[in-house]
Nucleic acid binder design. Structure first.
Lengths: 297, 297
DNA sequence: ATTCATTACGCGTATCGTAAGGATG
DNA sequence: CATCCTTACGATACGCGTAATGAAT
């Protein structure tokens, strides 16, 4: 007994005639005849009485048909549900992002997803890479998008490079340093900074960029993984925001924030990539999200 | 997508390993592998992530599995239900019987069915042949068992002979005619009778048996299709019961009723048979009932 | 080397379509 | 003879098992 034969039974009962039913099933009439009598043999009962007028379901046939209808309906639903899942028309995707992606391209991606796939639930966790990695390994996230430089290679982890974002120093228009024609590393060293949480691995590079000795600390006054919070701090204080350009593109455009450039300052680059579990395939929805991300990068 | 593949998915998810799942499915491991990846291709999604540890369902896989379980459960129920229907372990059979079968072998048949097939619903309509025929043609009955002599041949009707029952005249022990050594047709003519409803077609034969002219009426005082009612009348009056011997076997055995025999009286015989629709097959339950009937005849 | 899974290949069964064969009005 | 359904027969597709292959520890 399989779904195909059940469908044959149902359609035959509806049409009351082998030829019409076979036609509707895209089947030759003898094939339908065999299919039905095969099922009858299997069940050990007549399901239809045949005569020149056509076919009429027996009592057993009628009982089978009502149940078979339910079964076929459920099977159809299942198929549709799977198709929706595949096409991102339903279902849920949980992923993570570091502060820079979350502040640059991801808002636009989420906006697009929300309008084009209204039935798809998207959950985004914005956090620092360490926490994201922890959650990924616990399978709380399907993947995350973040600066991948601090990630140590791991065979359980799969890394897909996405884009580079150039870093910079950004301050408010009224910042004292904007008055100077030229800035030196000395000027930068004496300023105070706002930045996302920086992994220890970055510290040597940062000290080098700022011309600091290995014992000296970076002049960070505000650390927060939420770029929007940092932006607020920088707009209303003399702290300088240390982040990627893409994360402040809007404020640079409106003139709210201004980039500071100093002689000898080495521009740094964030390597934004997709991090996922090596032994877990990405769901169709995840692939869909990543495709939209790629389009917005 | 078919039930077989759904079962494969469910068992694989349960076992978490192709080899064990294949074993449980009585399948070779490569066959299961092909089955799963075939379904994955069909649905356009990965359902399982594989590695050396085994197979783990993806989000889509997990969703499929929960629905597939329901579907397989329903399909199994359907199969069992059909088997029960076939074996008479459930379901309903509605059939009819004339007064003579109802008073002779049918009580024993119904008793046996009730104890051996307690989950089978049996509905018996006891009535005269004309009414039974009407109900059969309206498909209110699946078949009926009755005296078939009055039935005119009809291509829509199928007739299966079952048994003959010899007719006779039965009265109570205290009946005046029992005092006479020998009875003549004259004696019978002056008595009064109780009988089931007799079709017009029988009248000439009855008149002949009683030695009556074609104008004369049969001396019937009580007509009822319920033999038990007639028996009561006969036990408490001088009416003579005209029926088959089988219908009064018990009362003859206990001596409550006595058979009257008259010179020149021609014994009549009821032709008991099964009447069903020619273009409707009998259900397995009907066949079961008829098999038990045959054993009791 | 062992333990997973997949791919290759040959085979048997199931299912199909065409064509021929009843049965029935 | 027209209209049903069933049987016969050859072709195809599908699913299976065995054996070979691949990947990972």
């Amino acid at each position: 007994m399989n779904l195909k034969k059940l469908r044959h039974v149902v359609v035959l009962a509806e049409q009351g005639n082998f030829a019409r039913a076979a036609d509707k099933l895209n089947l030759s009439q003898p094939a339908l005849s065999r299919s039905i009598s095969g099922l009858e043999d299997e069940l050990g009962m007549r399901l239809f009485d045949r005569d020149q007028a056509g076919a009429t379901a027996t009592a057993a046939g009628r009982q089978l048909i009502t149940r078979a209808r339910d079964l076929l309906y459920a099977a159809n639903n299942l198929k549709q549900e799977m198709a929706q899942l595949r096409d991102g028309e339903s279902g849920q995707i949980i992923f993570g992002a570091g502060p820079f992606p979350a502040a640059s391209f991801l808002p636009a991606v989420l906006t697009e997803l929300a309008s084009n796939y209204p039935r798809m639930r998207t959950v985004l966790e914005v956090n620092n890479s360490d926490t994201l990695m922890e959650h990924l390994l616990a399978e709380k996230l399907e993947f995350f998008i973040a600066d991948t430089r601090s990630l140590r290679p791991d065979k359980h982890i799969q890394l897909r490079p996405l884009t580079r974002q150039t870093g910079g120093l950004y301050c408010r228009r009224e910042h004292p340093l904007t008055l100077k024609a030229k800035l030196s590393l000395q000027d930068l060293q004496s300023a105070s900074y706002a930045s996302v949480y920086l992994a220890d691995i970055f510290m040597p590079a940062m000290r080098k960029a700022f011309g600091l000795e290995s014992g000296q600390d970076l002049p960070l006054v505000t650390t927060c993984d939420n770029i929007y919070v940092l932006k607020h701090v920088v707009r209303h204080s003399d702290a300088i925001l240390l982040c990627t350009q893409a994360a402040v593109a809007e404020e640079l455009g409106s003139g709210e924030l201004i980039e500071l450039k100093a002689d000898g300052w080495q521009t740094m680059q964030a390597e934004i990539g997709v991090v996922s579990l090596a032994r877990r395939s990405l769901s169709p929805m995840a692939e869909l999200v990543l495709a939209r991300v790629a389009a917005h990068v």
